[in-house]
Computed example of a mutant assay.
Amino acid sequence: MFQLGKTIVSEAIIEKDFMCNLSACKGACCIDGDAGAPLDPEEAEILKTIYPKVKPFLRKEGIAAIEAQGVYVTSEDGDLETPLINDADCAYVIFDKKKVALCAIEEAYNQGAITWKKPVSCHLYPVRVQEYSEFSAVNYHKWDICDDACTLGAALQIPVYKFVKEALIRKFGEDWYSELETIANKL
């Protein structure tokens, strides 16, 4: 671990390799697990605003889940998350012709319907950020459904921090990322 501004960063994001391999995993991170995508309070408000523009991109099951539970939910721990369909798929998940899970929010963004890409927690994956009162912990999350992504990342020699560069800049800024690159080059 090392400190970078008000973050404590796991060296694993520099040492581990990663490149999503959707042809292998089919977007399992959006349909496996026991909770929705973590949301910041500001993101929950954004979802309220953009939902009418995202709704046409959603599956009927997603619409039903969102209209029953809300555009976001609060977990038992008080965390904000995207709602789930039958305690499985993220309510915002859609599928392409090859049955690969995609994000309806991101699809709306890609088609110019909205200007917000998707929750930063999704954009950052496999990096997870835990907020504390004095700092943010930036960690690599190892999940067996991403083994193919680790294999592909290793073959292409793409470290995690480079794979999620855009998302890290979105979360922490250009200067923070530049400092991260400097540290990575020294290691």
Rank of each mutant, 00 (worst) to 15 (best):
F2M: 06
G5E: 13
G5N: 09
S10V: 00
S10H: 01
E11W: 05
I14Q: 00
E15Q: 08
E15L: 12
E15R: 07
K16W: 04
K16Q: 08
D17I: 07
D17L: 11
D17P: 09
M19K: 13
M19S: 15
C20T: 10
S23N: 14
A24Q: 15
C25H: 02
K26V: 13
G27L: 06
I31F: 02
D34S: 11
A37T: 15
A37M: 10
A37L: 13
L39I: 05
L39R: 01
P41C: 04
E42S: 12
E42W: 08
A44T: 12
L47D: 08
L47G: 04
Y51E: 00
Y51P: 00
K53Q: 14
K55Q: 15
K55E: 07
K55H: 11
F57T: 03
L58R: 00
L58F: 02
L58M: 11
R59W: 02
E61L: 10
A65M: 04
Q69F: 08
Q69D: 14
G70I: 09
V71I: 12
V71F: 10
Y72W: 14
L84M: 13
I85D: 00
N86H: 15
A88N: 14
A88M: 07
C90G: 00
A91I: 04
Y92H: 10
V93H: 02
F95K: 03
F95I: 02
D96H: 10
D96I: 12
L102P: 03
L102M: 13
A104G: 15
A104Y: 09
A108K: 12
A108D: 13
A108T: 14
Y109Q: 10
Y109N: 08
N110P: 02
N110W: 10
Q111H: 07
Q111C: 11
Q111V: 07
A113R: 04
I114T: 11
W116V: 13
K117M: 10
K118P: 04
V120A: 06
V120F: 03
S121V: 12
S121K: 08
H123A: 13
L124P: 10
V127F: 05
V129P: 01
V129H: 04
V129Y: 03
Q130I: 14
Q130S: 09
E131P: 11
S133A: 09
S136Q: 02
A137G: 03
A137I: 02
A137M: 12
Y140M: 05
Y140V: 03
H141V: 14
W143F: 09
D148M: 04
A149K: 01
C150K: 11
C150S: 10
G153M: 00
A154H: 01
A155F: 03
L156E: 07
I158D: 06
V160S: 10
Y161I: 02
F163E: 09
F163W: 12
F163T: 06
V164S: 04
E166H: 10
E166G: 01
A167Y: 05
A167K: 03
I169D: 02
G173R: 13
G173Y: 14
E174K: 15
D175G: 14
D175T: 14
W176Q: 13
S178W: 09
E181G: 04
T182N: 11
I183N: 05
A184F: 06
A184I: 05
N185F: 03
